[in-house]
């Protein structure tokens, strides 16, 4: 067990190392980092000072050392636009993103799990096809299109919901649905296949042989086990949602991390863009690590296999 955890932690550290190296190299290989890190309109003298300040006249590995050291100490640089540390900005926006992701996740599970169960119980039936089409639509429609159509219908035509901003439940509904629909497809598919697996297992046959009513077999015995992988995916996706909501947050002007990233692009605020990407990647690596360790704790087969 210990060995397994040590190895998993090792892999994650390696991933974080590769992540930082990827970002470091992309910034330097594809052009002059000074042009990204210096504010637009800076004089040649300023650029030269900046180059020395950043240590860009030093060998690459020294630069990389500085780069990692500053990240480890939580220094992601200063935003050009807000003139505050990127990390501070990130944590200011995080609660909003968490709220949006939380509600979006709830909606997506509310859609995904029941339709997944229905699809598994009646394979190739009406609900199976309806669920398939609904989830395929969620994957195919670009989020900004769903968002704009919702605005067109509920804000412009019906006038029921505010088209942008934050502050009330009404503000939250459309962005959360837009974000949640996209993820509902994955949750529906996984619920369906995991439910099908469980329904084929011995203990379900036994439950049926005992003469338990079908609703109890599915709703209690099967569902409990079928939901384990779905909940895991939901946990990972919650973190993913925080980091990919950029389109939704832009359409609805929701003040979360995605919006921060969008502002970073529009204002050419490179430290912000880089910071959001680095933190996002690191978050996902860490969540995967946590899930793996939790699984190993719950399921002895995983730790014995390794």
């Amino acid at each position: 067990m210990k060995q397994y955890i040590v190895r998993r932690v090792g892999y994650s550290l390696l991933s974080l190392f590769l992540l930082s190296l990827t970002i470091f190299l992309f910034v330097r290989v594809t052009g002059d980092p000074v042009s990204l890190l210096v504010e637009p309109g800076a004089s040649p003298d300023d650029i030269e000072t900046m180059r020395r300040q950043l240590g860009l006249d030093q060998p690459l590995w020294v630069q990389y050392g500085h780069f990692v050291a500053s990240f480890v100490t939580g220094d992601l640089g200063l935003s050009f636009y807000y003139r505050t540390p990127v990390l501070e900005l990130y944590f200011q926006r995080l609660p909003n993103s968490l709220l949006l992701a939380g509600v979006a996740m709830a909606l997506s599970l509310l859609i995904g799990i029941p339709s997944g169960i229905l699809a598994a119980v009646r394979v190739d039936g009406f609900w199976d096809s309806a669920g398939k089409i609904f989830s395929l639509l969620g994957l195919s429609l670009p989020q900004f299109w769903v968002g704009l159509v919702l605005i067109l219908f509920f804000s412009v035509y019906l006038g029921w919901l505010p088209s942008s901003g934050s502050g009330s439940v009404a503000h939250l509904l459309m962005p959360a649905f837009t974000l949640g629909w996209y993820f509902a497809a994955a949750h529906m598919r996984l619920t369906r296949s995991s439910m099908l697996d469980v329904l084929g297992s011995e203990y379900i046959k036994l439950a049926r042989l005992k003469g338990l009513p079908e609703a109890l077999v599915i709703g209690k015995h099967a569902l409990k086990n079928a939901l384990i992988p779905v909940i895991t995916l939901a946990g990972i996706n919650l973190v993913v949602m925080i980091n990919v909501a950029v389109v939704v947050e832009t359409v609805f002007a929701w003040p979360g991390i995605g919006r921060l990233l969008y502002e970073g692009i529009t204002f050419r605020d490179f430290p912000v863009v880089q910071g959001v990407v680095v933190i996002g990647g690191a978050m996902i690596v860490l969540v995967n690590l946590m899930v793996d360790i939790l699984y190993a704790l719950i399921d002895p087969r995983i730790r014995l296999e390794s």
Binding site: L19, F26, V273, V276, G281
Partner: peptide, 15 residues
């Protein structure tokens, strides 16, 4: 591990 859209935005911001 890098969210695809975020990663693409990052690269687009550089190049």
């Amino acid at each position: 591990a890098l969210p695809a859209l975020t990663f693409a935005i990052f690269l687009a911001a550089i190049v």
